[in-house]
Each structure stands twice: as C-alpha cells, then as structure tokens.
Amino acid sequence: MIVKKFKLPSDPYNIIITGVGGQGNVMASRVLSNMLVNRGFMITIGETFGASQRGGAVMSHIRVSSKGTWSPQIPKGKADVIIALEPIEAIRVLAAYGHPGVFVLANTRPVYPVGVITGELNYPSREEIKLSLQELSAQLWLIDATDQAIGLGNPILTNIIMIGAFAKLGKLPILLDDFIKVMEQTLTGDKLEINLKAFTLGMEALET
C-alpha cells in the first residue's frame, strides 16, 4: 500500500484527545488508533479513566510511530495535535502539553464544572476561549460538533465528528474507508450509517 510509506510529520506523532467523563473520549481514541494500526503504524495509547469519569477531565494520549512502543504518557510540551471534545479542556491540556506549533481542534459546546454550576468559578465566554486557543496554537479549528451531533439525533456522536475533522486535517493518512473498516467490526445497519454520517460531517466541518 502506498500509505504504508507515509512519512509521519514527526515520530512519534503525538495526539491528545481530551474531554469530560462520559463524552466518549476512550471510544474516540480507540477508533482513531485502530484506523492507524490498520495502516501499519505502531500505536501506544495512554488513558485516564475510572474515578475521573465522574465529571472529571479525561485524556487519551496517542503516540503514532513507525518504530515501536512509546510511553503511554506524552512528555510535557510534546503534543502535535489536541482534539478537545470540550473547549476549556483544550486550554488545560495546552498548559501542560502545548507548544507554539500545536494544532487544536476543539468542540465548542461547554460542559460546566461543578464549581461553575454553583457560581464559585467562572466559565470563559466563547470569544475568550477562542482568543486563548488561538494564542497558544499554530492553527485552531472550532467545531460545533455537539450541535451537529444533536442534528444527527444523538449528541454522543460528537466524538466521531471530531475524529472526522482530524482525519480531514491530513496530518495522518486516514480516509473515510479506514473509518468504515474499523466501524464495520462492531456496528451494522443504522448505527453504522449514522456513524459514517457523523465522520463525514466532521470532515466537511474542516473544509468550511
């Protein structure tokens, strides 16, 4: 296959998927990684879940390599791409793993921390978030993924839309066919169909 010879922008290429417990972080990292394994890459994923699922911030670190296994924790300042299912989580991750050359894809829908709900903490405005993310990244894409997922009938598809958007970014060789191949392993019929729609919507979101 041609893409097997694809040269990674860096090796390992480091992706962080971040969000809030319950947003489908783990599933997103699995789907993305399985597409890459099928393309012949060596993948290491490090995940934080368990208690953190209960309203806490969750992160998946994905290391894509043609050489071997890497640490399941990406070293500080070494993320190449951040995919945020929740916008302020992108800011939080940048503080630890960002650098001026990082690309950020962030869903715009907030999930408010309990401290914000009680009124003790402030949640920044959409504009403030945008400015921060722009300042801290080489390029930023804000995507209304949850709104689009609701449009498809299920907000849980947010993660697939975000993965679709990342695929379109072209940093790694991922096509719709790769997605289909992975999803067909576990899904059929309507469920497969709606996931493909979500992935495609994500790809389109990056074009506009």
Partner: peptide, 22 residues
C-alpha cells in the same frame, strides 16, 4: 514564554473540574 502564557490561560480560563456524581 509559551509556558507562562499557557499557564495563565489555564489558570484564568480553565476552571477546575471537580469530580461530581453523574
């Protein structure tokens, strides 16, 4: 310089996410 900016953004724009019952 980047770290300083990023830390400030996290401090002011990313409120702590305390664990909570679902």
């Amino acid at each position: 310089a980047y770290e300083k900016k990023a830390q400030a953004a996290a401090f002011f724009k990313a409120p702590q996410r305390g664990l909570a019952f679902c």
